[in-house]
Structures are given as C-alpha cells and as structure tokens.
C-alpha cells in the first residue's frame, strides 16, 4: 500500500516535471478531445482515438513543429480542465461563442456546419416546417424565428434530447424553452442517439455532421434532419481550437497552421474523408 502511494506520488512529480516547458526544445502541446462525438472525434475499436479532429490535430502539430499528446476528456468538464491547466488546447467540435470567449480564447475556425433537429423515420415530426432550407441566425433571425414559432406547437409534450453545455442546448433553451417540451440533457451525443433509437426521445437537436454519421450505422438507419438547418448566432461562429487566454503565442501558432491547412486543401480533404462533404469555413 505504501509502495502504491509512493508510486502515485512519483507519477504526480513526473507529471509536474513534464509540464515544464524547458524540458524539451520542441513545443509540447496537450490537446483534449471528447472521444465520443463521431465522426469529429471518437473511440474506435480497441480503444484508440480516431476522427476528423484527431487527423487534423496531428497535421497541425506537424506544421507547428510541436510534439502533441491527445487526451480524452468528458465534454462537461472540458473547459474547466483547460483553464485548470490539465491540457493546453481543446479540439472537440467546439464552436466559438461569446459565453465561452469570456473564459477562454479561440483560434480561427477550422470547420463550420449547420445544426438541426433529427427524428427517426416513422416520426410524426418528420415533416417540420422549413425542412430542407438553410438559415443563418446571424443574418436571417426574424425569418427563422417565424418558422421556429410554427414548429413550437408540434413539440408540445414531446421529449427532445441534446448534449449538455453545448451551443445546441443553449439554442433549445432560448428558442424552445417555452414550447412545453421536455428538454433532456445528455453527457454525450452518443447517449442521445441511443435513446432516440430506443424510442425514449421524440427528437434530438445536434450538428448535422454528427446526425449524418450516426444515420450510417445500421441501428440508426433512417435518422435524418427535420426542419431548417441553422447556424450562426447562439449556435456559434464556427468550430475552432479552444485555448487559454494567456497563451497568445500558442494561438498564433494554431492560427498560422490552420491558415496553411485551409490554403493547401488539407482541411477540405480531411473533411471529405470523415464527413463526405466539405465543411471547411469559407472566409
């Protein structure tokens, strides 16, 4: 027992030592991801991390000449973990929002994509108003709100799943908090996917990229977006690397690397590989 305690203390001391920037001349960057948000980042068979952001992180690190370690961290603790110094960057499908900018900083966006409700094939909610149309909450809010107001009565008495502490949950609270629907918050998107397939939920609200990827698996066949595809405003200004406010030089390094990866088409290529569509931000 004493030996175990000693071992653990030793491990702690070693970890403190590893955090010392002077230990190696090559920059050390620890990147946190969720590992439960396919195809952005997920845990593959055998337990290793895979996905768009894993490939992208490795590419960016090569460009920054940094030695990176990627760690899995639950979503609901991912920002506190960054500010507490547990790791140096977040790449976990995280959108830039004003609320998050109060606490952390972001690189320039490396991806952007719409969000939507999704339902199973036999759902009465399949034909929501606005299906197939795309809106920006930043520029077309009035028009979109008119449609959302038509959707509201359809959701009365229904149960909607969403991941906790996301732009999606903030969106539901703001626009559907008074719709008379039960909003159930999940720790991961995989959990609400399972629950909509099991019939515990009438709809989920998530990023379209994640919905499409889920629908490819046999148990979720037929899961599809319903209602308008939305982005901007409270849904965020694109997916970017989350960084501590104090780490200005790391932000500069990530910005330059993302810029280069956008320019030479790497991000588009990775996007096609994982999402079957190009979600590189147009700027």
């Amino acid at each position: 027992m004493i030996a175990r305690l000693g071992g653990a203390l030793l491990a702690a001391v070693l970890a403190l030592g590893a955090a010392d920037p002077a230990a190696a001349q090559q920059r050390q960057v620890r990147i946190a991801t969720e590992g439960a948000y396919a195809p952005w980042n997920f845990t593959g068979p055998g337990g290793q991390l895979e996905g768009f952001e894993i490939d992208l992180a490795n590419d960016l690190c090569r460009r920054m000449n940094a030695r990176c370690t990627i760690v899995a961290q639950d979503w609901d603790g991912i920002i506190p973990g960054l500010t507490a110094g547990r790791y140096d960057a977040i790449m976990a499908g995280m959108n830039i929002t004003d609320r998050r900018l109060e606490v952390i900083n972001f690189s320039r966006p490396y991806a952007a994509g719409p969000h939507a409700f999704a339902v199973m094939p036999n759902s009465p909610l399949r034909a929501m108003p606005g299906t197939g149309r795309t809106f920006s909450l930043a520029t077309q809010e009035a028009e979109l709100v008119a449609i959302l107001n038509q959707i509201k009565p359809l959701l009365r008495g229904r149960t909607i799943g969403v991941q906790t502490a996301t732009t999606n949950s903030a969106f539901l609270t703001q626009y559907f908090g008074d719709a008379g629907a039960t909003i159930r918050e999940y720790r991961t998107t995989e959990e609400h996917d399972l629950d909509i397939a099991a019939g515990r939920l009438d709809a989920i609200f998530a990023a379209v990229t994640a919905i499409t990827a889920t629908a490819e698996k046999p148990e979720f066949r037929g899961l599809a977006p319903a209602g308008p595809l939305m982005s901007g405003g409270i849904l965020g200004r694109g997916v970017a690397v989350g960084l501590r406010k104090a780490d200005a030089d790391l932000k500069a390094a990530f910005d330059a690397a993302i810029e280069a990866a956008l320019k030479d088409g790497t991000i588009s290529r990775l996007s096609e590989k994982w999402f079957k569509t190009d979600i590189a931000p147009r700027s």
């Binding site: 979503w75 609901d76 603790g77 920002i79 506190p80 500010t83 609320r99 606490v103 906790t164 502490a165």
Partner: peptide, 9 residues
C-alpha cells in the same frame, strides 16, 4: 451543480 460548473466554468 455540475451543469453550472460546465457552463460558467
């Protein structure tokens, strides 16, 4: 409480 921690940090 956990939700407050994860939204207000």
């Amino acid at each position: 409480a956990a939700r407050i921690i994860s939204t207000t940090y």
